[in-house]
Amino acid sequence: MSPLRRTFSPPGRQRGAIAALAALTLGIALLLCVTLLDSLRLYLEMRALQRIADIAALEAASRQGRCGSTASAARYATQSATRNGFIPDTDERRLETRCGTLVVNPDDGSSTFVVNAASTEAIQVVASHTVPRSIASGIASLFDSSSQPTTVQLRATGVAVVPVPAARLNRPSTINALEGVERSGS
């Protein structure tokens, strides 16, 4: 028998190779699609949660909310989140509001929020929501006997600084000055 005949098999023996390769390729493509869709879903959930936290913090700060006995900052943040479709304390959704200050690092310019209920310089809003982990982990749990959590908690933090007025108009003194001009001119 020639060495070439031993190396190459007759065409009849290679019939299932392409079908097996196609099935393997299809399986890998399906796995990649599921992973991509899960990643995209979690990314969009996180992005929506970050938007809620940012908007709630901005509204609580712009309305000059306070912490402590009045707790208007928490009320303003909750109202803002509810208007934007995030209803706290339902469907494992949480919204936490804290007052404090921003400490700026002089070396790199980064800022850190420091909790201080007596301060009204900055407001931090933390929004969290528990969502299903992924389709892929659900399929994997069918074949794996170890118990892994089927949910994951997403958390987003928004911090806003309470705006300081640049100028203040004192109306009574302006009106008194105008009244004085009218009286002296008549």
Results as ranks from 00 to 15, higher is better:
Q64S: 13
G65K: 00
R66D: 04
T70V: 12
T78I: 04
A81C: 04
A81F: 02
R83V: 13
N84R: 04
N84A: 08
G85N: 11
F86I: 00
P88Q: 03
D91V: 07
E92D: 15
E92V: 09
R98Q: 11
T101Q: 06
L102Q: 03
P106A: 09
D108G: 09
D108K: 07
G109K: 08
N116L: 10
N116Q: 12
N116A: 13
N116T: 06
A117I: 06
A118L: 13
S119E: 06
S119R: 02
I123Y: 03
I123E: 01
Q124D: 08
V126C: 02
T130Q: 12
P132A: 09
P132I: 05
S134N: 10
S134K: 07
S134F: 09
A136W: 06
S137R: 11
I139W: 10
A140S: 14
S147V: 15
S147Y: 15
Q148H: 11
P149A: 10
P149M: 08
T151M: 13
Q153W: 03
L154E: 00
G158R: 01
V159M: 00
V159Q: 01
A160L: 01
A160V: 00
A160Q: 01
V161L: 11
V162G: 01
V164R: 11
A166K: 15
R168V: 15
L169H: 06
P172H: 05
T174H: 11
A177H: 13
L178Q: 09
E179I: 12
V181K: 13
E182H: 04
